[in-house]
């Protein structure tokens, strides 16, 4: 990776947003080790984000102060005090009503999670070092409802953990990645995802061995059909 490439592909923005693939992020980190301009630009992008958050916070504080000022002006007369109290109650009760409603939704979700899961989709990949383009990817048909999907990823017997796994969306962006992963008692990595995270399309799951020179151990492909 060189500097014109970083500018032409807006690598810094992608790095800040976490949308680079792990390999590209590593290449960019290797590049900025010796590129002062990129380090400066990276700091700038992050400062811009912090500054915009600060502006948003100032705007919110100003809006809240405006509301309090209105209440103070209203509270000056006797009738005004009653009106201010009513307004205050309305403003105070609205978030409470919102929280109660959200709490009901969370309780419902919790009940769903605690209920036994029937016919959970389990995808077991075959042990392979690289996906063969001639072999069609594992096909996974999902319905509309939110359900867990379990991926069982076999690891080579000689490989030692910890491992890193990266799941790429159909457009190549990273949907999920985990580091420091250890195999279960059978020597597999097991990953559970909610089906709602998986839109229709072709996904790639890459597994790497940790170490000074990270080594790819396996690449698995699967296709989600809805």
């Amino acid at each position: 990776m060189n500097h014109p490439y970083v500018d032409d592909h807006q690598i810094i923005e992608q790095y800040v947003l976490g949308t680079l693939s792990p390999e590209e992020a590593e290449r960019f980190e290797e590049h900025y080790l010796t590129c002062a301009a990129c380090r400066e630009d990276l700091q700038l992008a992050e400062r811009l984000g912090r500054a915009l958050k600060g502006v948003a916070a100032e705007e919110l504080a100003a809006a809240a102060a405006g509301r309090l000022g209105l209440l103070a002006r209203l509270a000056r007369g006797a009738r005004g005090r009653a009106l201010a109290a009513a307004l205050f109650l309305a403003v105070a009760l609205l978030p409470t009503a919102f929280l109660l409603r959200r709490n009901a939704g969370l309780n419902e979700r919790l009940a769903q999670l605690e209920a036994p899961q029937v016919n959970v989709a389990i995808v077991r990949f075959e042990p392979t070092r690289a996906a063969d383009p001639a072999v069609p990817p594992v096909r996974l048909t999902l319905g509309e409802a939110r359900e867990p999907v379990v991926f069982e990823i076999p690891l080579p017997a000689a490989a030692e953990g910890p491992f890193r796994a990266v799941l790429h969306r159909p457009d190549g962006s990273v949907l999920w990645q985990g580091e420091g992963l250890q195999p279960d008692a059978r020597g597999d990595l097991t990953l559970t995802l909610p089906s709602t995270l998986l839109a229709a399309g072709d996904y790639q799951l890459l597994v790497f061995a940790a170490g000074p020179e990270p080594r790819r151990l396996a690449r698995h492909a699967f296709r989600v059909v809805r």
Binding site: D7, H9, Q10, I12, E13, Q14, L17, D41, L44, A45, R47, L48, A51
Partner: peptide, 13 residues
């Protein structure tokens, strides 16, 4: 979208 963010950063700088 990346281009909008890139130009904003350049302008900020």
């Amino acid at each position: 979208l990346n281009l909008v963010l890139f130009r904003a950063r350049q302008r900020f700088k």
